[in-house]
């Protein structure tokens, strides 16, 4: 190596978000509760419960500030079976993306269901969460859902 080459300026190039995202007054409460294995929703003036906690009602445009706790179990509203997960999927064996309506909620939440067969899935099937052993106040504090048997 010549002397000139060793003088080259170098800097690492890592493509990443090097900042933390704030989740705001409503969602941060949802995530805090989630890390303690509790599911929170927000309620509008007519009693409709949004889970996961929503900041506003998209139909009435009202700001939602009243929190309610719902059960951590729910039912499948819709599902899509992924037989051959792609590298970016978090579960590398066959699983399903699902819309889950928690008991006590009026809206659904996107998540995943694992440890079951495609034929087990249908609208109304009951599911329960598998909690992460290392909660980080994010949606993946629930690793995925399994069938409630």
């Amino acid at each position: 190596m010549t002397k000139q080459e060793t003088l080259k300026l170098q800097a690492p190039f890592e493509l990443s978000y090097d900042y933390k995202r704030s989740s705001g007054p409503i969602m941060s409460k949802f995530f805090e509760a989630l890390s303690k294995k509790k599911i929170l929703g927000t309620k509008n003036a007519s009693g409709k419960v949004f889970v996961p906690a929503a900041e506003f009602d998209p139909n009435t445009n009202e700001a939602l500030t009243e929190f309610v706790e719902v059960e951590s179990t729910g039912i499948i509203e819709s599902w899509s079976w992924v037989a051959n997960p792609k590298p970016h999927h978090l579960i590398q064996s066959a699983f399903a993306f699902v819309l889950i309506k928690f008991n006590g909620a009026d809206t659904s939440m996107l998540h995943m269901v694992s440890e079951c067969a495609e034929s087990d899935l249908a609208k109304g099937v009951k599911v329960k969460p598998v909690w992460s052993s290392d909660p980080k106040e994010m949606i993946l504090d629930i690793k995925y859902f399994v069938l409630e048997k």
Partner: peptide, 16 residues
């Protein structure tokens, strides 16, 4: 917050 961390692909979302 609620969706991207789950890495749902466009096909699975359409499938729902």
């Amino acid at each position: 917050y609620y969706i991207s961390p789950l890495w749902p692909d466009r096909i699975s979302l359409a499938a729902l």
